[in-house]
Amino acid sequence: MKEKITTVYIICLLFVLCFGLACDLDRWQDSSSRKQDESSGFFSAVLGETEGLISALLYLKADVYFHRGYYPSIFDNTSESTGSKMEKTAGHPDEHGHNHEKCEKDYSREPLDWIDRFSRSFYPSVHVHADEIPRGQKEILPWLKLSATFDPHRIENYTVAAFWLRSLGKINEAEEFLRDGLRANPGNPELLFELGKIYKDDRKDITKARNILELSLARWREVTAKEKEPDTFLLQQILVHLGQLERDQRNYPLAIKYFEELKKYSPNPQAIQKQIDEMKEEMNKSAAN
């Protein structure tokens, strides 16, 4: 009887201990999940660090679709590459994938043996990009959206998807997706720049484009203020677009200011100087008239 009572006491004690621990853990979990929810949402709370890996894999999948399955495996030797071709094509406003430069994903080599030669008939062994077939780039989009769902802080998902959506004429969808990105990454200069391009090139809303591009420039300066050697590629792009916008509006002094700054970073300062000279000449003509 005494043993029975002791057992009941032990069970009660363990129950109280478990209850207390559960309450404490619940409070701790609540605060940690709130933190995660604030930063990333559902997937972040459930998957933790894994979501970044899944997002990276999905982004890679989008690149595989850009190359229509012709993609090197980890065992194939490729020339040194610093980012996907899909991203590079999307990053250069003047390069729409129709260039004939050698792509980093070119890994073709002479077949080593008869099995290697024979196997090439059964998988994609000709390098074609998705944008070389009509509306082929649409197949990239699901992977980018899924990748952004898993990791909303991967900026390239939004910028690359916005580029391809614009190329498909889906301006509203591109803007909506970029705004999703801005909600997850407030004030990101890259996303603001892409949004500015939509207003400048597609919507032809100069005032909004100017405001957004100027905000993008200000945010770039803010973000890179503490960096010793900031990546100036985005800065150059923002300055080019702002300069072009002001030049087209015949606001030459401001355009010259942007081009002067661009000259410091441009790999071809002579061409920039030539444009500055042309604008100065135009200003002088207007003053003379």
């Binding site: 229509r68 399955g69 099995i115 024979f118 196997s119 008939s121 059964f122 994609p124």
Partner: peptide, 25 residues
């Protein structure tokens, strides 16, 4: 080499059919 029988990439990316002589081989 059972990986040779995997035509998924060709199907997914809408490539044309494999040459029949190679397929029968």
């Amino acid at each position: 080499h059972i990986e040779l029988f995997d035509f998924r990439k060709l199907l997914v990316h809408n490539y044309p059919a494999v040459a029949w002589d190679k397929f029968f081989l």
